[in-house]
Design a protein around this nucleic acid. Sequence first.
DNA 1: GCCAACGTTGGC
DNA 2: GCCAACGTTGGC
Length: 180
Amino acid sequence: MRHWLLKNEPECFSIADLEAAPQRTTFWDGVRNYQARNFLRDDFQPGDLAIYYHSNAEPSAAVGVVKIVRAGYPDHTAQNPKGDHYDPKHTALNPIWYMVDVRHVETFPRIVPLEEMRKVPELKGMELLKTGSRLSVMPITKAEFDKLVKLAHSPAPTPTAAAKKPQPKKKPAAAKSKRS
DNA sequence: GCCAACGTTGGC
DNA sequence: GCCAACGTTGGC
């Protein structure tokens, strides 16, 4: 059994949306990157667990756990010319893009922000933390998975005086259209 | 909003 | 097959 990290913008589909979905399950569609596709098509297995990560969020953070309930199969949203994820090169006979089904397992009692993850030695090796990392589907180790779950069930770290910075004023997030 | 980093495209 | 231009991602 493998462990994964799945990234999505909450404006697009948040973990709350997944929790509210029928059977608390959805297909993880719209991945249009070959490296991520290979993971989805070749390596995801039912029973695998994944960290749900909110990107472009305030703050960006690990927010929960999902379980893979169906292995990779062709992403039919690539065949919808009206959809955001249309790709004319993808056909039913020669599929290019794949998706998996995921089911909600847990919404963390405390989210683990990216900023906090960067400070945890056990998480140093994660692809997510690398500069310029844009993969939306990536493997993580069991140790990394367990550490994130443990952090999410522990109190927030108390910032030291030195680490405390005045928070710059933030504008409320503008309404965003669904990501393409 | 800015912009660095990245993947993809297309001219040659 | 190179690589510059382009579009996108995503933290800040």
